[in-house]
Design a binder for these strands. Structure first.
Lengths: 190, 190
DNA sequence: TTACGTCTACCAACTAGTAGGTAGTTAAAT
DNA sequence: ATTTAACTACCTACTAGTTGGTAGACGTAA
């Protein structure tokens, strides 16, 4: 349960970035939220760019171990995809993580510090490759019927997921995520 | 060619918002860009919230007349959809409007001034309804094969479009938009 | 005259970031 | 065993620059 100060800083920063993007939070916000002085945050993360780089690094690390674990622990491609979709469905439904932090940052990628931008780009590349391997395996085992390459399906699916998150947020209807992604998954399993 | 100062202000604000969102621009930015003092911008738009409200109002007005015109001038639902998709494909390819401003703002909707937030929400609702009418007409004329309700397809398609924009931006590959949306359109026309 | 658009000059609040100090911990050297 | 040194985490106090926003003057065109 014991959480280090720098972890707390990253947690707050993450929730603020998910709500308002890179320019949507300040050192003062974090300071207020965890009851520490602004200067102390600079002790842990000298600059804002370094703070967000560390945060995106932590995030992508969690994603990689999470999705890597799915591949290891779940043999069936269809169930792997369900695990991925189910994770987001749960996060959005209970509002614990109502938006992908990297998707948020990607929308402002043009004005992000270069280090952050390339980490965000890396996340998109990793996720696309992960989906590609799942679709490829599924097609080979005849559990997915693809009408295009696994790579193309991966890009299409990733876009649907991010778009569904956005619609759910814009229209303030969390259930819209499942309504959009469900049919998408069903069509693949045909 | 003569453009009013307030139109110039809105133009600059729009390009800045598309790049970095609501917090991604300031009165000083606009001031520098069009060679006018900050205080003069406040004369046209007293507060930032009013400026962005006016901007989103202008944007949604353009969208409504544009999409309304498509329905009037193009009888075939398939061609109507092509017109919509083609518009974005061109905007993204030539980088003239590489992202939907309302999609950008929707991602930060939680921290937007309430007036702006509801205008953004309205845009999502309008676009979903427009797509729904196109899909409904297409299904009735047997040019679209839908495996769910027109409303569901509208939400799915809208999400794909926004997600495709995001992927194209994140991976810095404008051609990804067409690569994601093309198959989506093709599948409908089956 | 009146109204408009623009200006200079200002404001308080906030931004990221720095300088320098204090207290407590750890690890070696005496 | 005790002193020394380095390190960590935090603090107060500050800086220079930016933020959105205001007050009031100026010239110009109707």
């Amino acid at each position: 349960m014991e959480q280090s100060t720098s972890e707390k800083i990253l947690d707050i920063a993450q929730s603020r970035i998910i709500a308002g993007g890179y320019n949507g939070f300040s050192y003062a916000d974090i300071s207020d939220a965890i009851g520490i002085r602004k200067a102390s945050i600079h002790h842990h993360f000298p600059t804002k760019a370094e703070l967000v780089s560390a945060l995106v690094g932590r995030y992508t690390g969690q994603v990689k171990s999470g999705l890597g674990g799915v591949l290891e622990q779940i043999p069936q491609p269809a169930a792997q995809l369900d695990a991925y979709v189910g994770h987001w469905q749960k996060c959005i439904a209970d509002a614990s993580l109502p938006f992908c932090m990297c998707a948020m940052l990607a929308s402002e990628i043009q004005m992000l510090p270069p280090d952050v931008a390339s980490l965000v780009r890396g996340h998109f590349e990793y996720l696309a490759r992960w989906l590609e391997t799942v679709f490829d395996a599924g097609a080979r085992h005849n559990v997915f019927r693809l009408n295009a390459s696994p790579e193309a399906h991966a890009q299409i699916f990733m876009a649907s997921v991010h778009g569904a998150m956005l619609s759910a947020r814009a229209l303030d209807k969390p259930e819209l995520f499942a309504a959009v992604i469900g049919p998408q998954v069903a069509a693949l399993k045909a």
